[in-house]
Design a protein around this nucleic acid. Structure first.
Length: 517
RNA sequence: GGCCGGUUCGUCUAUCGGCUAGGACAGCCCCCUUUCACGGGGCAAAGACGGGUUCGAUUCCCGUACCGGCUACCA
């Protein structure tokens, strides 16, 4: 089935430039699932040298959220998934914001009325509400529409009168009677519906704005979209869109649809939501999002310490693979390897542990140079200035293996640049004695004379003195570590000492010895 | 309720009719390591169920179960 599909869309592509779109409604934080939709769009488009378009679906004016659009650009920017066309980037099919395209939609809605595929409906929201309350499973459809207040049930004169009186109305699609509506989904193959099952969806709202159903069809046509990807939750309304294409622009011009599998909660079942992240302690949004009304801040993957490469890599592997065991992919590798045929049908439960693994892998894989700026800024935010970039490079090299998050670099490398604020003296105090005190005094004298300040040398000297004093080196390593880093963490002590340098190392030992007195 | 979709280790997945069902994360064990990691090695762990089709079904078909999505003048 999938193979046939691929042939199908390959044929189409020879005559049609690949153009895809991501069409979010700017109502809040950018969800994991949204990012994955962006990603699949982007990878597919770039694989075929096509265009990736960002269209803002802001037709619901009641849901306008300040800053949400700008936030989407920031997320895409962080991820390195830049649109070729967007409200911000411009393009030949502007405007890309549906609220600015309002006049366009009306003419198509009216065309549908003229053709007999749609009708005016004057029922108020309250009337519909009560209807739904009194009649279980009420649907505005072939069975009920003649009992409602619309241009099908009313005479032409009555309708005209209501229109002339400027009575509020919506335009609804007239679903055909008992027709089979089918299409071929790139992921699922042929999907069929019976038109009787679907209600007469509103196409144009009382405020003159289109609903998603009309807007998506009109804009996909006008923007010459060749392939339309969206979440699986849209599958049930696909027949409305298919019919609209048929009525308005011709089914042969319709983009190829792909309904992407959902990202599910790690525990239990159902779509992953922001709530789940809060509850289970992991981010769901790409970047920090602060609700302008409540001022409530929701953590993002970026601020949690994820590398965009890792975030992308993790998301793409939920539902796609290249057929081999390869799991780590760069963006370019993904672009090269990405094929729709290899997209999985079933939803995937989000696994934060695996997400962390991807991030760790990417931190280890990244060059020190690449990490440098990010880490420098991170340290700066924590009042640590790493002016010596050469030293920072050495530190990153030494420490990156043990950082799962970028934020782990704060704890793992602060002490290289700044004397530890707190020293876990209780970890060494109980076993501290005069013999150890003398050892470190001697160590200071030796290190002061050390010519080659290298970890091998330092380690040898350390062990020699231990041997002479008949102390097991193991008993001295921990105290030494605490003296240099303040706690029981960090890379090998002598590597730390090497990077710290002679002066600083000795200073820290001395400081600690006074604390132990 | 109706419609649509989905179903391989705990999780993400491979398998395009030949399977001793492979990999990764997590788990457990061992090695390395005079902190913690990294790394190396190993163990355990799966085809929802019932019918077909077939020499042979995880793979194809049908049914059942379970899970999910949708059922707004929201997307």
């Amino acid at each position: 089935m999938n193979k046939q599909n691929s042939k199908h869309y390959f044929c189409k592509m020879n005559i049609k430039k690949v153009r895809v779109r991501f069409a979010p409604s700017p109502t809040g934080g950018l969800h994991l699932g949204g990012v994955r939709t962006v990603l699949f769009n982007y990878l597919f488009a770039k694989h075929f040298n096509g265009d990736f378009i960002l269209r803002i679906e802001d037709t619901d004016q009641t849901r306008f959220v300040e800053g949400a659009e700008e936030y989407i650009y920031e997320c895409l920017n962080w991820l390195g998934l830049q649109p070729d066309e967007s409200p911000k980037h411009g393009g030949n099919f502007a405007p890309y914001k549906q609220s600015e395209r309002k006049p366009i939609y009306k003419q198509y809605a009216e065309q549908l009325i003229v053709q007999g595929n749609a009708y005016y409906a004057f029922d108020t929201a309250e009337e519909l509400d009560t209807k739904r309350k009194t009649e279980a499973n009420f649907q505005y459809n072939l069975h009920t529409r003649m009992g409602m207040k619309n241009s099908l049930s009313l005479s032409a004169e009555e309708t005209k009168k209501l229109l002339d009186e400027k009575k509020p109305f919506v335009i609804r699609i007239k679903m055909p009677d008992n027709e089979e509506v089918k299409f071929t989904d790139m992921i699922r193959g042929e999907v069929k519906f019976n038109s009787n099952q679907i209600d007469d969806k509103v196409l144009l709202k009382a405020d003159g704005m289109p609903t998603y159903h009309l807007a998506v069809v009109v804009d996909d046509y006008l923007m010459k979209i060749s392939h339309a990807f969206r979440g699986e939750e849209w599958l049930p309304s696909a027949p409305v869109h298919i019919l609209l294409w048929q009525y308005l622009f011709g089914i042969e011009n319709m983009p190829q649809w792909a309904h992407l599998p959902l990202i599910l909660k790690p525990d239990g079942n159902g779509k992953l939501s922001k709530r789940d992240g809060d509850r289970l302690g992991f981010p769901v949004f790409a970047m920090d999002w602060t609700d302008p009304k409540t001022n409530e801040k929701t953590i993002g993957f970026k601020e949690r310490g994820f590398l965009p490469e890792a975030f992308i890599n993790m998301l793409v592997m939920m539902g796609w693979n290249d057929g081999t065991d390869k799991e780590i992919f760069s963006l370019q590798e993904l672009i090269d390897a990405f094929l729709m045929e290899r997209v999985h049908k079933a939803g995937a439960k989000f696994d934060y542990e695996k997400a962390k693994w991807f991030n760790h892998e990417w931190i280890k894989k990244s060059t020190n140079y690449k990490l440098q700026t990010t880490i420098e800024n991170l340290l700066k935010e924590n009042n640590i200035t790493a002016i010596d970039l050469n030293k920072l490079d050495q530190v990153i090299e030494l420490v990156k293996d043990r950082c799962t998050f970028l934020t782990d670099f704060i704890q793992q490398s602060s002490f290289f640049f700044k004397q530890p604020e707190t020293i876990d003296i209780t970890a060494i105090q109980p076993k501290w004695n005069e013999q150890r005190n003398l050892f470190f005094a001697e160590l200071i004298r030796t290190y002061e004379l050390t010519q080659q300040w290298q970890h091998e040398v330092l380690e040898n000297e350390f062990k020699e003195i231990a041997a002479v004093n008949e102390i097991k080196p193991g008993e001295l390593m921990l105290p030494f570590r605490i003296m240099l880093v303040g706690g029981k963490f960090g890379p090998h002590v002598f590597n730390i000492a090497e990077i710290l340098g002679k002066e600083e190392t000795i200073k820290r030992i001395k400081h600690c010895l006074t604390l132990l007195k």
